[in-house]
Every structure is written in C-alpha cells, then in structure tokens.
Amino acid sequence: MSKTFQLKIVASDHLFYEGKCEMLVFPGIDGEHGILASHQPMVTCLSAGELRFQIDGEWHYAAVSDGFVEITPTFVVLLADTVEKPEEIDVNRANEAKLRAEERLRQKQSIMEYYHTQAALNRAMNRLKITKRHS
C-alpha cells in the first residue's frame, strides 16, 4: 500500500472531497505541482485548470478555478472558487459562455471589464477541455 495523506478539497459553496489520497496534481501559477505524502510544508496559489488526485490507485479528475493550496507532510487543503467533476459540467452552457466572452472581448471595455471577460473565457475553455478529455 502506498503512503497516503489527508486531502480536503473545498469549493466556495460545498465540500468537494475529504479523505485519504496517494497523489495530488494541481495547476499553479508557475506550472503543475505534484504532491505526495511527506511533502515539504508550503502555501501556494491555485490556477484554473485540471485537478487530478489518486485514491486507491484510481485517478479522479476535476475542473478547478483560482484559489489556494496549503500543504503539510500529512495533509493538504485545497480551496477554490469552483470545483466540478467532468460529468457535472454542462457543455452547452460552457460553449455559450465561451462565445459570450469572445464577443465581449471584441468590444471596447475598461481594463477591469477586460480582466473579468478574460477570466470568464478561461473558465469556459477549462470546462470544455476537462469534459472533452474525461467524458
């Protein structure tokens, strides 16, 4: 049996997962991070992308948005705005959100509106990528 650590994945509106984990891979601002039991303590930023975690030798996947990750040798807490399983994502809704964001980017916007639109486009594209890869 592999060494495990306690993993808690929390979205802004619900607890996504809590239990033992063998390995966690998440997107960070400086690339992907892989976490095993006995990892050095650290706190880092979570970027929107694909979250992967291994339980009993089986990989589980989710689309995550921005957040934070706290890592200690025995537990990891991942806090994100949203965490969604591939089967929970509405592909039509994600496509519509992508099209809306692309249209808004073609229009004149303030810098703040531009950043919000770019974030919406990134979320929609991430959801579509995750569903395409794991459905």
Rank of each mutant, 00 (worst) to 15 (best):
K3W: 05
Q6W: 03
L7S: 05
L7Q: 05
L7R: 08
K8L: 12
I9P: 04
S12V: 09
L15M: 09
Y17Q: 07
G19H: 11
K20E: 12
C21E: 14
E22Y: 09
M23A: 08
L24Q: 08
L24A: 07
V25C: 13
V25S: 05
F26W: 10
F26V: 14
E32K: 12
A37I: 10
H39C: 10
M42P: 00
V43Y: 08
G49M: 12
I55P: 00
D56Q: 14
G57E: 08
H60C: 12
A63N: 02
S65K: 04
G67P: 03
F68V: 15
T72M: 09
T72K: 04
A80Y: 02
V83S: 00
P86Y: 13
D90E: 08
L99D: 14
E102Y: 11
L105C: 01
R106Y: 04
Q109Y: 07
Q109F: 06
I111T: 11
E113K: 08
Y114T: 12
Y114I: 13
H116A: 12
Q118K: 14
Q118R: 12
Q118G: 02
A119W: 01
A119R: 06
A120E: 13
L121F: 04
M125I: 05
I130Y: 00
T131C: 04
T131F: 05
K132V: 05
R133Y: 09
